[in-house]
Design a protein around this nucleic acid. Structure first.
Lengths: 338, 338
DNA sequence: CTGAAAGCGCTAACAT
DNA sequence: ATGTTAGCGCTTTCAG
């Protein structure tokens, strides 16, 4: 194995504790001693064995980010931010893909990783409040995204109802009347889909537009493929929609593709809007109007709060933070500018 | 802290070693004893502390996947595969984003993570053969992607020259004569860019077409934005190209966007091809023809070889594996089918 | 300011 | 088939 504290201690003629203190700076060390130790460290090329340190401290230095789809650029972008923030705080972030699988989510929640990770940032989609409350693990948990509220954990998300409300409002503002929603979820699945659905209905009502069940498309997954398939079905309707609100940008992209294949003009025939503001939507043809959550804020805040909990800030009560979002107008709804 | 081996041993009235053997199965354990131990484990809800195990074994159970762009869907897709494979082999995979930064790559190579990870899968873009040879770390290293050859490490990549050759050949086959290349890299950077450039030149020569320097566009990065910018420049040429080969799909997507903005028809005016086969290219308008590497093969093989090294298969000589690729025809070069 | 020693939880000799 | 024990490398009392 590599160079250990002991090697340094021998070389510098001091005790283990002193070397440890030079490395960690917990206690003051005499200047002369420190120099001797530092020299030994440099000469031998010592780096601390984090595993041993963590064993001793009872922590691993690892935090996990559990997301339902690694393939969704939204999460990839979020992960990149979180990894950077974690690294800055001295933690390594590992990604866990739940693949939106209920069993996987339960396993994660119940601390199958008890000794592996110090804390968990979790974007649940298949489990609800009760499961979170019933959780036995005692590692800190920060929830992100949507779907689970009123639990004793920090929670960071946009206001889904308000976000989809804003999306529909925009479609109404540009004169659309038959507005479809792609990405409804069956039963108790995907709370966020229900919330976005609620915003959809509320905004329709607020605009005095009727709610038409045939304009709501369920999907099993939430990718490009699902968006395309659903859009095709909607186009087959006797009276197709004149606008589509996608549960997320990937669904919006899929819808754009179906529209292109069907020879429909966007936004003239059908306007399209999504949520997430993934980079892809800035380069699609047409570019995709979207509701942009503040990913930077979500990713950083989630990591910071988690680390605060891990390091013992038990004092503050769990916080629910609603991060801001904004409408980004692009070609798919007839952008005014570029 | 949680339940430890010792707790189980006491509860079951056996020794530590016996519990360890029940858990790990290294040595046979009597049926009656095993049952008692198992019961204690179940009752107390014991899970092994991996950190301690790894400290003892001198391994951490972590492997790292170091890539230049987490944001590139190609790497996200690759990572998903690698994570799955690693999990199946009992390893946790952590992602390291070098951001194509030379310092970051050198740091990684020299084992700043010595005690943190058991091995490294590395996609270098800014360092070359000499740096790899000079590496002091002794953890196993598997190289993926391109750029560094003839080093004593396992290496998994497609044949870049052949791949870009195939791309150009396709463009020639559909009748293009003024074929541009976007994504050339300056100096010694991005070996893969040089290799793809070589394939480009070779294929031009083989087709009896002249090499025109003005049709080669350098980019600093390799994203959608760079593709768009370069394409704009190419369109401003007196005689613009009738086809474009992008260093990767993201560049291709960016080029598509620039062409759409300029009102050019694809593929009639300009055909476009990329490399990577990211899902995005199956949904863009038009869909993007591409050279598809076998990501599944690359990801799985890289993990398997690395784990084999970690677990002591020092015997076999380092292997360079060239994984297959294939041409996927889509609308951007005038697909025959759908 | 520095040192000695205990022990985090586990595995692997070495015993029996 | 099972038990005993010595550490893996580190941090942290407790003593000087």
């Amino acid at each position: 194995m590599g160079v250990s504290l002991k090697d340094i201690a021998e070389r510098a003629g001091v005790s283990l504790a002193t070397v440890s203190n030079v490395v960690n700076g917990y206690r003051p060390v005499g200047e002369r001693t420190r120099q001797r130790v530092q020299q030994a460290i440099d000469e031998l090329g010592y780096t601390p064995n984090l595993g041993a340190r963590h064993l001793r401290r009872g922590r691993t230095g690892l935090i996990a980010l559990a997301i339902p789809e690694l393939n969704n650029p939204y999460f990839a972008e979020l992960a990149e931010i979180a990894i950077r923030e974690a690294a800055g705080l001295g933690y390594t972030l590992v990604m866990e893909n739940t693949a939106a699988d209920r069993e996987a989510e339960l396993l994660l929640l119940d601390g199958s990783h008890r000794h592996t990770i110090d804390g968990l940032i979790f974007s649940p989609v298949r489990i609800g409040r009760d499961e979170v409350l019933a959780r036995s693990a005692d590692t800190p948990l920060v929830l992100i995204g949507e779907g689970v509220y009123d639990v004793p954990h920090d929670h960071i998300a946009i206001d889904n109802v308000a976000a989809s409300h804003a999306a529909i409002q925009h479609l109404v503002a540009i004169g659309r009347r038959r507005i479809a929603f792609i990405g409804a979820a069956p039963g108790a699945d995907r709370q966020s889909a229900h919330l976005r659905m609620r915003g959809y209905r509320e905004a329709l009502a607020a605009a005095g537009l009727p709610f038409r069940p045939q304009l709501v498309a369920r999907t099993d997954e939430f990718g490009r493929l699902d968006g395309r398939r659903a859009m095709r079905d909607l186009l087959a309707l006797g009276e197709p929609p004149d606008a589509v609100f996608g549960y997320n940008d990937l669904i919006g992209i899929g819808a754009l593709r179906a529209l292109a294949e069907a020879g429909c003009r966007v936004p003239e025939d059908v306007a399209v809007i999504g949520i997430d503001d993934i980079e892809e939507g800035r380069f699609s043809t047409p570019t995709l109007t979207t509701i942009a959550p503040d990913k930077e804020e979500i990713g950083r805040l989630a990591v910071r709060r988690l680390v605060a909990r891990i390091e013992g800030a038990e004092v503050a009560a769990p916080l629910t933070v609603q991060t801001p979002f904004r409408l980004v107008r692009r070609e798919s709804t007839g952008t005014p500018g570029a």
